[in-house]
Nucleic acid binder design. Structure first.
Lengths: 195, 195, 195, 195
DNA sequence: GATGAATGAGTATTCATTCAT
DNA sequence: CATGAATGAATACTCATTCAT
């Protein structure tokens, strides 16, 4: 009955996304998620072993999707700078289109013990490395200054985008439009590191 | 008995800083903090009305200190770009010198309901505005491009620094030294926005 | 699983009756009641929302039973004076047969905030009105003096019986037998108000 | 410094009367009483050894006064029935004039462990015996029926008055005036027991 | 697989009482 | 005597997790 399994699993993840975003991880009760998903409390433990697991699964599934998508999209461009511009736009667009998810990643995820302590955040490292690879490519092509350290630069660029999205998530409104913010931030970065 | 009051208050804040950083806000028990501070559980409630209050007090006191210090230090420079370099260095140095505090601000603070919901984070806005004011000054002096939007740029710069410090806090090691990171990040930013 | 529900509910009420009578409302711990009922502490909160709710439920259930019984029994007599004699006897007999319950109603019930403040004691008013109605009936039939005020008389009669039972409850012994006390008290009252 | 002692003692008793009546014994905090009395918390423990002691002292002092007064007043009458009428009136008048005190005696006193368990309520027994003595006197004079049992009759009469005052205390209003209630209740009783 | 009643460990907060000043 | 800061024992209630049906 594989089909049915996936169906329940999906419904629980969807319900948890809603409930975590609304109440926060610690305040969200398993029974809230169960009610929202239309299943019994105990059913959740057939698909997830702990409360933390729901949060982590939710994060991993979404991150896999995001990673795949971002990889595909940036590879459509050949110019490293064009890749950077596209990355900025897609990242901020993603936040805009997935407010609940964004709030969970920005705020709630950090409240899970298991996530913060036991979980080596590989997916996030891969996401950062997408930027690192673009920068390295730029350096190889002589487009980016030799003294730029990719390990710092990728974090600086990601941090700039992330702070923008944190602002949007917490202020519950978008002061600047996605395109403007993406263009500004990628322009600082590109001008900042180009040869 | 004013002296004694401040003494206890200080000891509790210091103990809480340690315990929150080690265990996280939700997992930290009042009795842990009391033991660490060398007082009885009940004594904590003479100085703070709730568990949340300890966290918020801790944040406000530190932020006031940081703000005052950062304001004083940046005003020693006259060139806006020199101010930016100094800001980056001081910010990262501060994180390095206050690991516990940094971890609390990065991670734990967001777990306090009262903090996230009822508290308008004025101190943080003022901190960001220190950067915003430098950028505006640079634009006024013709050193920074006219099209740069300070509301986005200040967040991009802060975010770049913050992501670097988050990396340090979470990885529990400093891969790059403070001076290198500060120089890199401020160079991206300055080159990125200068005329 | 309706049967099981009622079973647990009943067991908790029975345990609470015992514990409240022995220790008093404030001193009775939820865990005492749980142990006595043979359930976990948390189980109590499946059936009752607060500690006060146990006390109030306990009171209401017993009062309903008492009221129904008293109404049925007094209606078996046609003579108002015979009704009064029977009321006195049944009231004191009830106390004798339900020492724990009587002590709770006499003493503990008043320690519940919710009971004293938010709860309009309708059941007790109905109980008093059983006496009031008998007196009115007696007046209508010309058996009781015209100047008798039912609102005072019903309280005087109930108070006389209640003081007797308070004495029994607090002294932990019955100095006079139920029948003697009932006959004495109803005789004072009947002779006192008859035409 | 005897005079000063009595002064503080008196102030604390007065404050406690107010606070117990308003909040109830369990909810009244020592610090509430201290504030109301204008002394420090610790000062209360110079004059009383426990919280219960305040309640018990308060009760004893008032009862002594009441007993003395009631004894003096009833001895002014020679006719036992006139004594009964006067007793009823004085008792209800006392309640009316000392609402706070009455509420404490009716309700709060029973919340003190020490009072209910360790304290043999001698003063109250003496108060009841005032009625018992009057009834015995009436029997000796041939005014009251031989079959009347004073131990039951005194409680019936006191209970009638007490229920009336409980009604007044709890309903926070006086539905009938003191004189009417006293006349009614003593008339039931006198007619009920006279030869 | 699904249910949901039952479990019981876990903790912030209160407040009577003490005692150094 | 008076103070009031400090103490720390005491407890109702929550909720993740289990397991008999």
């Amino acid at each position: 009955m594989r089909h049915k399994d996936n169906e329940k699993h999906r419904k629980i993840i969807a319900a948890a996304t809603k409930v975590f975003a609304k109440k926060g991880f610690y305040k969200a009760k398993i029974s809230d998620i169960a009610r929202e998903a239309g299943v019994a409390d105990g059913t959740i433990y057939i698909y997830f072993s702990h409360k933390d697991d729901i949060l982590i699964s939710l994060f991993e599934e979404k991150m896999k999707e995001v990673l795949d998508n971002m990889e595909r999209q940036t590879s459509l461009e050949t110019d490293p700078f064009a890749k950077i511009v596209r990355f900025a736009f897609l990242h901020l667009k993603l936040i805009e289109d997935n407010k609940d998810m964004a709030e969970i990643i920005q705020v709630e995820l950090r409240q899970s013990d298991k996530f913060m302590k036991d979980y080596h955040n590989e997916k996030f490292a891969q996401y950062l490395d997408l930027i690192g690879d673009i920068i390295q490519e730029g350096k190889d092509k002589g487009l980016i200054r030799e003294d730029i350290i990719p390990g710092i630069a990728k974090r600086a660029f990601f941090g700039a985008l992330d702070e923008m999205s944190r602002f949007w998530v917490l202020s519950k409104r978008r002061t600047y439009d996605v395109e403007t913010a993406a263009r500004q931030i990628s322009s600082y970065f590109i001008n900042g590191i180009k040869t």
